[in-house]
Design a protein around this nucleic acid. Structure first.
Lengths: 146, 146
DNA sequence: GTAGATGCAAATTGTTTGCAAGAGA
DNA sequence: TCTCTTGCAAACAATTTGCATCTAC
């Protein structure tokens, strides 16, 4: 997304266009690893060393409120964010905390049972798989005594 | 579950049978509202006024590690726990924080796409729906100026 | 010019930990 | 008895907030 489009997007969302927001947004769109606020902060500081962590928190919160980023339902640790606007599902590693995406036909918003509609208004739906990723499984194998 | 069975269950899990664990377990099995640690604490204190909050945290953590309770993937607020051992899905209200259950055929462990198996070892899988529950929708309607 | 955004520091909240005393097996 | 568990208080980490300054519009 070029800068003009982004200015328009921010304006439509009622957000002023600031350098901090621009950088946070760019980091989020480029990230594939569902970074935490602090991780975003570290990345953004590469280009804006003076940005403060609370600005990153505030920026992510306002993005989330406007649907520009999504908060990944994690396992109770620190909040993780996702800049990918396409609906998708998540694999959470309980060992290293990594979060990966996957897709699954038949598990979209339109596939939810009717009972959900009577519950209230749905904002998003996803499958959340928890387990231990292959990398961590390999590590624990290597740690076994020979 | 009667006390003898529970003693056996704890013993099999390598847990000593203590009054605190007994009470926490009972609260969790009876709860339908996916309580937070502090909510569990408040309920348990009805019968054991001297129990401390950190004991509840430790107890829930050891139960979770042994699969006796499940941590509900929430939205970044406080941890919520579920004593229902049957696989099921969750509806999370972003307004009041309530968590409800629902069931959905075709969204169980056996329905996950093959790509998930190559990711690693799966511990559990669930559909997580976020939105605003009917009660909160009603409240916000009532709050509208006439 | 004005409302909204930022940086700093302090406060808040949820959760974990060290340690000494207590209780289950 | 001996290890595991508990309570207390202190420590911790993630996130939020008050306020003065600054900036986009």
């Amino acid at each position: 997304m070029n800068i003009e489009n982004l200015k328009t997007l921010f304006a439509q969302s009622g957000l002023k266009f600031t350098n901090q927001r621009y950088l946070v947004y760019r980091v989020m769109v480029e990230a594939r690893d569902h970074p935490s606020a602090e991780t975003v902060w570290r990345r953004v500081r590469g280009e804006a060393p003076a940005i403060s962590l609370d600005t990153v928190y505030r920026t992510l919160a306002s993005f989330e409120a406007r649907g520009l980023v999504i908060r990944v339902p994690g396992n109770g640790e620190e909040g993780r964010f996702d800049g990918n606007p396409m609906p998708h599902h998540h694999l959470v590693c309980l060992s290293c905390g990594s979060i990966d995406d996957f897709t699954m036909p038949g598990a979209g918003l339109s596939d939810l049972p009717p009972a959900v509609a009577s519950w209230g208004r749905v904002r998003d739906a996803q499958v959340l798989v928890r387990g231990v990723c292959g990398k961590c499984l390999g590590l624990s194998e290597n740690n076994q005594p020979a």
